[in-house]
Design a protein around this nucleic acid. Structure first.
Lengths: 161, 161
DNA sequence: TATTGTTATACTCTATAACTATA
DNA sequence: TATAGTTATAGAGTATAACAATA
C-alpha cells in the first residue's frame, strides 16, 4: 500500500543527498532527550551482552539488587520500584524463583501477600553481577574520565530524583 | 506455577522490610547505566505525551528531522541512521507518506531505490515539532540550569559519538 | 549473484481487564 | 467492599527469514 498520491515535495527531488560529511542526525544534537536515548541504548546494550553470560536481563539484575536492599518487601513494592506493572513483577519473580535466586515467603499477618528474599545462591550471584555491571559501565563509558562519570551521574540524578 | 520448593533464604524471613526511609534502589546509584535509563525514561515519556497531540511517536519526529537534513536519502540510510532494521523503516515511512508528510521518489539511475523527501506539509509540521521537542526537553530537565544542560549534552555525546 | 525494498513472522516488552483468595 | 497476587490478552517495539524487482 501507500504507493499512490505524491504530495508536493518541499525540496527538488533531483537534488541528491549530500555526501556523508557528518552524522545524518546533526540537527537533533541540541536535544537532551535524543542524546540521552542514544547514550542509554549504547550503555544498555553493553550490559545486556555482559549479563547474557548469566542468562539474565537487566531488569532481573535490578530486581535482585532491590530485593537484597529491601529484604522482605512485597511484590507491589518491587513493581513500583522497578516502574513496572504488578503482572510483570509476577513473571519476573517466577523466573528468579524457578532459578533458585529468590524466594517468596507467605506473610504471617496478611496471608494475601508475600515477603520476598534472596536465597544464598541469589546473594552469591548478585555479588558477581554487581562487579559485572560496574565493569560494563566503565567499558561503555570509556570515553569519560572518572570525574566526568561522577558529574554525569549527578546530573542524571537531578533529572529523575 | 512455581509455588513449590523454597531455597534457603539468605536473610531471616521474619525480618520486615525497613521503613521507606529512602529510595529502594539506592544500591544502584553509582551505576551510570541505571541513572541513564531512569533519566531517559522520564524525558522520553515527556516527549511522548507532547507528540501525542500530533499523533506522532518520537521515532517519527526523528525520522522527519533526518529526512529534512538529508533530502533524497535512501531508506537503507534512514534505517541505519535511526538504528532500526529496514523492515521497520518501511512501516514508519508508510505512515509518514500516508499522512502526506514525506514522499518516496523513484531514483533515476537505480530504479530499485527511492529518494525520500519531506512534503511542504512535512516541512511546516517539523518546524512546529522542533519547538515542541525543545520545550519538552526544558520541562523534563527543569531541575537543571542552562550550563548544566550543556554539560550534560557534552558528556552524553562523548559516550555515543 | 548481489542489493533495495518489501512481506510475513516471531519474540520481547509493556499495559489492561478480569479473576482468586484473602482481608 | 477493598487489596495482593495472578492469569489472560493485546498492543507496541524489535529482529529475522524469505520474496520481488532491479542491478
Amino acid at each position: 500500500m501507500s504507493r499512490k498520491s505524491s504530495p508536493t515535495p518541499a525540496a527538488d527531488p533531483q537534488a541528491a543527498a549530500q555526501p556523508a560529511d557528518g552524522p545524518l542526525d546533526a540537527s537533533l544534537d541540541e536535544l537532551i532527550g535524543y542524546a540521552l536515548r542514544r547514550a542509554q541504548l549504547k550503555v544498555f546494550q553493553h550490559l545486556v551482552s555482559r549479563l547474557g553470560a548469566f542468562d539474565l536481563r537487566p531488569a532481573q539484575f535490578t530486581a535482585l539488587a532491590i530485593i537484597q536492599q529491601n529484604a522482605g518487601l512485597m511484590q507491589a513494592d518491587l513493581a513500583r520500584s522497578l516502574a513496572i506493572e504488578p503482572p510483570q513483577a509476577v513473571v519476573l519473580l517466577n523466573k528468579l524463583e524457578s532459578r533458585g535466586l529468590a524466594v517468596r515467603v507467605r506473610c504471617k499477618p496478611d496471608k494475601r501477600s508475600y515477603g520476598i528474599f534472596l536465597s544464598k545462591a541469589g546473594e552469591t550471584l548478585l555479588k558477581q553481577l554487581r562487579e559485572v555491571a560496574a565493569q560494563s559501565d566503565l567499558d561503555a563509558t570509556a570515553a569519560l574520565s572518572a570525574e566526568e562519570r561522577q558529574q554525569l551521574i549527578g546530573l542524571l540524578h537531578k533529572i529523575y530524583r
